[in-house]
């Protein structure tokens, strides 16, 4: 059978290396290259990328050098110390605890939860949507009824109840509790696109080429909805920072001895803090604004990279 091809084509094994080299020269740039070009063309997004990467790296590493239980000890002598001193860069709160150190550890906790939550909920949501949309029929019906059921549950109330009844919860268990509820939006979004994508001929062509269903789903269809996945994931990351922060602000997030961005913003509950002791809450609030803005800038670049007609970066 191989002879059959040899006979009717004037290409033989000897030409392989040369032709391969020719083809490499003509190859289209890889996705990573396209994304990088797109960042280079958009200076604010480039700045946003450095802010995000630099900041996350800084708090992750910085938090390792801070002894959290010691930091969280109350020290009445430092009650609301002013910022910009050698002991307290960003001042101290009502317990005499350093705001700067709390900010580092709190950011680590909040961002860690947001990353964990995004990874878990997006993975589950994407798989759920892809499988449900691809197979259709009874599988789709069953999976969508599960979706409807979890959608019907009052999310915030369930989380608050779960947090209250679990005796010793920490960042990990909190992430898992959030993950129970936050996969839904993603799954419905992905499913709707998968339904449309499954009808296209290239899926039929993969089937007649003998490719298995799982390979078609994850190597055929998923790359084609990757722009949607990337945008949804970056935006839900920004949203997920808000989820933990909001709940901690209400007092149902992390335990009080664990600093987080939410507990720090909760300092603004007190009118005197807002007017007199601004350093207790303003840094955390600014940080959230900067993080979320940066993420959405990055998301825009990724969206443009995924859609050739919107690209601003150099072609090569």
């Amino acid at each position: 059978m191989a002879e059959n091809f040899e006979k009717h084509s004037d290409i033989s094994a000897a030409d392989l290396a040369r032709l391969n080299q020719e083809a490499q020269a003509e190859a289209t740039p890889s996705t990573a290259k396209i994304i990088w070009n797109e960042f280079k063309a958009d200076k604010p997004a480039m700045a946003a990328l450095f802010i995000i990467v630099g900041f996350i790296a800084f708090v992750m590493i910085g938090a390792l050098f801070i002894n959290t239980p010691k930091m969280m000890e109350t020290n009445i002598m430092d009650y609301f110390d002013k910022p910009f001193t050698t002991d307290f860069w960003l001042g101290a709160d009502s317990g005499g605890r350093s705001v700067a150190k709390q900010l580092i550890v709190g950011s680590r906790n909040s961002i860690g939860i947001a990353i964990g939550l995004t990874v878990i909920s997006s993975t589950v949501g994407i798989c759920w949507g892809l499988i449900s949309g691809y197979f259709g029929g009874y599988i789709d019906w069953g999976m969508q009824r599960v979706y409807d059921f979890t959608m019907m549950l009052p999310m915030l109330m369930m989380i608050i109840v779960l947090v209250t009844i679990i005796p010793h919860y920490n960042a990990v268990s909190l992430t898992l509790i959030f993950s129970l509820f936050y996969w839904e939006g993603t799954s419905r979004l992905i499913r709707s696109r998968t339904l449309a994508e499954t009808q296209k001929d290239y899926v039929a062509a993969s089937k007649t080429s003998g490719t298995s269903n799982w390979k078609i789903i994850f190597q055929g269809i998923m790359p084609n909805i990757s722009s949607l996945i990337i945008i949804d994931t970056t935006l839900s990351f920004a949203e997920n920072i808000g989820v933990e922060t909001g709940l901690s602000y209400l007092g149902f997030g992390l335990p009080t001895q664990t600093p987080s961005l939410g507990t720090m913003i909760a300092n603004a509950n007190d009118p005197t803090n807002i007017t007199l002791y601004w350093w207790t809450w303003l840094p955390a609030a600014l940080e959230i604004i900067v993080l979320c803005l940066s993420i959405s800038y990055i998301g825009q670049v990724l969206r443009r990279a995924a859609d050739a007609s919107q690209r601003q970066g150099a072609a090569d």
Partner: peptide, 18 residues
């Protein structure tokens, strides 16, 4: 090699590969 031969049979150049 087989892919290159197939491209050749349908009259396309090797630089189509990538």
């Amino acid at each position: 090699l087989r892919v290159l031969q197939l491209l050749n049979i349908v009259g396309l150049d090797a630089d189509a590969l990538y």
